[in-house]
């Protein structure tokens, strides 16, 4: 199999306006590809549509126009629940439900295939750098970083083909963020996972490599390939953005 895992073509998304007001454009004519086993990072100022774009990939959002293909197939032709198992989402703020870590790892719809045996659950925790005895911990007592690693373990236990990460480190302090970056890189190496990440964490961008898309006001402003250990980012606006300058100054707007 060689085709891209995700192919987004001319994707546009606008929310219907309230009470006859005009529609609110969120994404405009976005096209991109994610290679199988590859990575793509979405960056851009807040409100630029990065999360919305990510959520179009597992069809939590419905584009107004354009297509999203997963593994060569239009996502509209797939059962969204199966698509979401194959393309697992990890959100910025980890959501764990009442119960133990085990309850949370095993949370799945009836009939979900996969190995949820005790041994596998323990392996899953080790894979994200947590002790196996975490299984019986009350989920509510975990720290933010531990919670995030449990949600990553929960996603990986379903054996997804792709991992969608929505700012997975931005709610964490630097040491925990570093652990999560480490976890993601390791899991990717071991499993040949495709990864699409919204992140401002330079370390995560560097470790993922692949491509980088710079979104401003829902449009692709720059689309770069970062190959090798020290990516040469050609686009001046993108460089400035990653260096922390104001996105509005960067894109030439007041």
């Amino acid at each position: 199999m060689s085709g891209p895992i995700f192919a987004v073509e001319h994707l546009t998304l606008a929310y219907p306006g309230n009470r006859g007001r005009p529609a609110v454009p969120v994404l405009t004519d976005v096209s991109l590809e994610v290679a199988r086993g590859g990575a793509l990072t979405l960056v851009g100022p807040s409100g630029s549509g990065k999360s919305t774009l990510l959520r179009c990939l597992n069809r939590l959002e419905e584009p107004t126009a354009g297509t999203v293909r997963f593994d060569g197939r239009d996502v509209r032709s797939l059962d969204p629940r199966e698509l979401r198992r194959q393309a697992a989402l990890v959100m910025q703020t980890p959501v764990l439900f009442e119960g133990t870590v085990r309850d949370n790892l095993c949370l799945r719809p009836a009939g979900t295939p996969g190995d949820f045996s005790e041994a596998r659950l323990k392996e899953g925790l080790i894979e994200v750098g947590l002790e196996p005895d975490f299984l019986d911990r009350d989920a509510a007592t975990l720290s933010g970083g531990e919670k995030q690693r449990v949600t990553i373990a929960r996603a990986l236990l379903r054996d997804p083909q792709a991992l969608l990460l929505d700012e997975p480190t931005s709610a964490l302090d630097p040491p925990n963020a570093a652990l999560v970056v480490e976890t993601i890189s390791r899991a990717r190496g071991a499993r040949r996972l495709s990864i699409v990440a919204v992140t401002h964490q330079p370390e995560l961008v560097r470790r993922l490599g692949g491509s980088l898309v710079f979104l401003v006001r829902g449009r692709v402003e720059a689309y770069e390939r970062l190959d090798g250990d020290a990516p040469a980012i050609g686009d001046a606006r993108l460089q400035a953005f990653l260096a922390g300058e104001s996105p509005h100054a960067v894109s030439g707007q007041p």
């Binding site: 597992n58 939590l60 979401r84 959100m91 703020t93 959501v95 719809p109 379903r158």
Partner: peptide, 16 residues
């Protein structure tokens, strides 16, 4: 909403 969307992302139906 994040709870609901976490459930959806885990493959649960809207109703669930």
């Amino acid at each position: 909403a994040p709870e609901v969307e976490t459930m959806l992302a885990l493959g649960f139906s809207g109703r669930e």
